[in-house]
Design a protein around this nucleic acid. Structure first.
Lengths: 151, 151
DNA sequence: GAAGATTGATCTATCAATCTTT
DNA sequence: AAAGATTGATAGATCAATCTTC
């Protein structure tokens, strides 16, 4: 019986398949409802919010692209073009680094900080309306704990 | 205090925000790992699997595009082009309906059935390896139950 | 050569408009 | 007009290749 390492996984149980299928559906359904609210408020997509929030929380309001990549689970080329668009809107700006000629830093601007706050005014209530409202407080905590195990 | 209908949602609790953030991350992380396995096996993306599975489970192995749309949470034009690509590969075929001149049905082909089985041989173990393995049996059942509430 | 990041080409997703049948 | 479905145009995502600096 060769069962070493992570290889040789067998077929999943019905409970596991059900959890996986519902993870996909619950995410798609909730996200599309929440994104619809942002869109109705004429705000940009959630990916922009995620970038702005990470930058705002970072030391000095800036991160290097590969750090954003890791935190947002994006790939390098996607980060590159996402930053392009956001820089074009004045939400972030690229800064050359003195100590490493290869790298740059992406810094949030005042406009970026303002947009992040403005988006949260819609995003927060949307999370509450489409997620929080459907769960008891203890259920939300349990769900957060179980999902943590999948990371 | 105007609190009628679904309007006026307030800011979400920390547990709710945490559950939501992890729902997004857990889905992205698990999906990218699982899709990577399909890709390594030179198999098509999961969306194709979903279509094939829905068709196989449907009465007569066929569904109308708008039925697929509802089950897969896709939009009409996306279904239209997804079917285009799958039909080009011989996995499904469009059939004109006698009773409703507007509509068509999408039917799974033998090649489609074969591909669905072949994909499951990789997909099933990938679900077990990236999801099932990280949860106790009772945890998977609890997770499935909580996610159900979000639909 | 490897790390950090970008670019060109291509594929997919999305929006608005269109077409046919009911 | 409404339902079912498709199409043209465009934005975004993905792949492979490239560029610069370490």
């Amino acid at each position: 019986m060769n069962m070493e390492k992570g290889a040789m996984a067998k077929a999943p149980s019905n409970h596991v398949v059900s959890a996986w299928a519902r993870l996909l559906r619950a995410r798609d359904a909730s996200l599309s409802r929440i994104e619809a609210e942002l869109k109705a408020a004429e705000l940009p997509p959630l990916a922009w919010y995620d970038v702005l929030l990470e930058l705002r929380q970072a030391e000095g309001g800036k991160l290097r692209p590969f750090e954003l990549e890791g935190r947002l689970l994006l790939e390098q080329h996607n980060v590159s073009r996402l930053i392009d668009r956001m820089e074009a809107k004045g939400l972030v700006r690229r800064i050359k680094l003195a100590d490493d000629g290869r790298g740059q830093a992406v810094a949030i601007t005042e406009e970026g900080r303002a947009l992040q706050k403005k988006m949260w005014l819609v995003y927060g209530p949307a999370i509450e309306g489409h997620v929080g409202r459907k769960l008891a407080a203890s259920e939300a905590a349990t769900l957060a704990g179980l999902l943590q195990k999948l990371l």
